[in-house]
Design a protein around this nucleic acid. Structure first.
Length: 273
DNA sequence: ACGGAAACCTGGACGC
DNA sequence: TGCGTCCAGGTTTCCG
């Protein structure tokens, strides 16, 4: 479920719990989370490479969460329903798919839906999904000009381009919808038809929406010790997402839902042009 | 090369 | 209560 701001918040919050610690053991309780293809057997085995390694740090690329080890990396993708849960020594493991045991406790990757994935890698770029990631909205390089380069020549709806991880890394359905609302741009517009001014507005809106979402994800920060923890910022901050039939807080028109690329898109027909 | 649709999984919400 | 259907904040793969 998490998009860029949520994964960034998870990375920043989990790092102090595990940085500098050594992994005593890895436990793969549900091998499907380590599989890329239905008959892949290499993925699950390679996770054992993390055993006895020390954690250097934790970071994010796109929606991937990376744990850097003193040799190799662990790459997590939460997809729709994956999350981290922390168990200290006293508490028994709940439903966990993949666990890292530290002296101080266990970091569990939990995903009852089993769409999330964990991989061990020599280098992050070894995973094609990471190697091909596009521009990161939190990076200093993210600008109207760079966004213009991405939109130029694309006949696809601007919403689909924003969500294309090879173009812009980390945006998902919620924050894309919110960014387009912020910039007053209709998500159905062909990307190449945006003017220079609209493109600059959109870049500013994306950066602002993502930064504000990150801030709210960190206040309060995730509580990994509570297995039920989850972000609430989506509901609180959404101006259009999942608000079909309600009135736009900016112009009063009724918010619509349409389908794009098989996903729901929410927008205000009154002020998004 | 590009774009659209289906597949991958499971649980929860909703209607009858 | 039970059952069917639809939906979900994502990515990869397949197909035209």
């Amino acid at each position: 479920m998490p998009e860029l701001p949520e994964v960034e918040a998870i990375a920043r919050t989990i790092e102090p719990l595990i940085a500098g610690r050594r992994i005593l053991a890895t436990r793969l309780l549900h091998p499907i989370v380590a599989r890329n293809s239905p008959c892949d057997t290499d993925g699950p085995l390679s996770l054992a490479n993390a055993r006895a390694r020390k954690v250097i740090g934790v970071c994010r690329r796109g929606k991937y969460l990376l744990i850097e080890l003193d040799r190799g990396w662990l790459a997590y993708h939460f997809r729709l329903s994956g999350q981290f849960v922390w168990y200290d020594r006293r508490r028994p493991l709940g439903h966990v798919d993949f666990a890292l045991d530290f002296p101080s406790g266990t970091l569990g990757f939990v995903d009852e839906r089993h769409l999330g994935r964990v991989r061990w890698l020599d280098r992050p770029e070894d995973l094609p999904g990471i190697a091909r990631l596009g521009l990161d909205p939190l990076s200093r390089d993210f600008s109207g000009e760079r966004l213009a380069g991405v939109l130029r020549g694309s006949r696809r709806p601007v919403k689909l381009v924003l969500m294309d991880q090879e173009k812009i890394a980390g945006l998902g359905n919620i924050w894309t919808a919110e960014s387009l609302w912020q910039a007053r741009i209709d998500p159905r517009r062909r990307a190449e038809t945006l003017s220079g001014r609209e493109t600059r507005d959109l870049a500013r809106s994306v950066a602002r929406v993502v930064r504000r979402a990150l801030k709210s994800c960190l206040d309060p920060a995730p509580d990994f010790r509570n297995p039920e923890w989850w972000f609430e910022n989506g509901d609180k901050m959404a101006r259009v997402y999942a608000r079909e039939g309600r009135r736009c807080g900016r112009c009063g028109a009724v918010i619509r839902r349409v389908e794009q690329g098989g996903r729901s898109t929410y927008f205000c027909p009154g002020c998004q042009r």
